[in-house]
Amino acid sequence: MTDVVQITVRSDADIILVRQQARMLAKELGFSSSDLTLIATALSELARNIVEYARQGEIVLSQIRQGSRRGITIIARDRGPGIADIERAMLDGYSTGKGLGLGLPGAKRLMDEFEITSSLGQGTTVKATKWAR
């Protein structure tokens, strides 16, 4: 069984592809249909950030099995311009792009665990996990 999938993201078609892959992996782990939608939505925001700000990056989806616990981890990584002020980027409604500024804070609310690291000129990495209930 494949438990890690790595996908290069550079266009809006790739965003749809990663959503479909995540749904498949999460479904295998027994996530409910509403959790599948939450994961797909968070992933959509993270993948769109890559396309919009860094133009290209990658998404790594991993199934986690820890004892009886099942979860899915999303890593969204790019070598784009980086985020100057992460605290502000995590505030609702703050955007330097053309979005609504809900992508990062929204994705954080949709997932159970969320870490973001970024450095200017180096890129941004987001790691987010959702556990099956």
Partner: peptide, 16 residues
């Protein structure tokens, strides 16, 4: 759909 409505609320999109 119900699950999409819920995701939109979580994301803060409902008021949009």
């Amino acid at each position: 759909r119900p699950e999409i409505a819920f995701a939109m609320v979580q994301l803060g999109l409902d008021t949009r």
